[in-house]
Design a protein around this nucleic acid. Sequence first.
DNA 1: GTAACTGGTTACCAAAAGTAAACTGATTAC
DNA 2: GTAATCAGTTTACTTTTGGTAACCAGTTAC
Lengths: 114, 114
Amino acid sequence: MIRKEHKECMSALLPVRDTLDVIGGKWKILILISVWEGNKHFREIARSIPKLSTKVLSKELKDMEMNHLITRTVLNGFPVRTEYKPTEYSKSLEKVILELHQWGLNHRKKIFTD
Amino acid sequence: MIRKEHKECMSALLPVRDTLDVIGGKWKILILISVWEGNKHFREIARSIPKLSTKVLSKELKDMEMNHLITRTVLNGFPVRTEYKPTEYSKSLEKVILELHQWGLNHRKKIFTD
DNA sequence: GTAACTGGTTACCAAAAGTAAACTGATTAC
DNA sequence: GTAATCAGTTTACTTTTGGTAACCAGTTAC
């Protein structure tokens, strides 16, 4: 008997993975929203997100800077302060996040009424 | 000096988290696409996704069944075969995935041309 | 001088996720 | 009887991710 052909898929999935890498994980979207809402300084962002440690925040901010979602500026002056700001580019994620949000809302209904 | 107010955000983010739980991780979208493409049986799905172990596949399929993305039917007959099929509901993820895909494509351009 | 703030780093841990391979028990093909 | 298929489960291990808490240097407020 001839083995039934199976279909190899997995083409063009890298972009989806890329996006999930950028916004996935436990904290990235929370941090992004915090910065969107106007929190600018390291400790300010940290305080705005309960349970987020400075270690993790530090790492996530670096990732997000690399991905052009935020900018980091050190203001010289005393005391030295660091300012994190969302980029224009980061706004392009709004649509994606909205989509995730809406699907999630609907899914909750689906799961609980069913 | 009065501490500057920081803004508490983090409202209404659970739905986003829910969605990321359902489609996040390394394998779920790949498995979904495999099933969408017509792969129906356990080994068939496993073979269609290189590097995916049967242990992980087994667990992911259970999760996905719980989230109503696929159905699992055991066909009685010899040999016993199991059939996994995508649900109509699973189609509602297409838009979300498309959005993730497009943002990811654009992001690659951004990162490499910049 | 002491406590509390600034922006982080370091070392150590725990939990989750993933990997590889062996193994179930049943059936089928040679 | 032997090997290979089906649908998974089990075991033992590594990797990744996240978490805790202490700590640094410098500044400010009392």
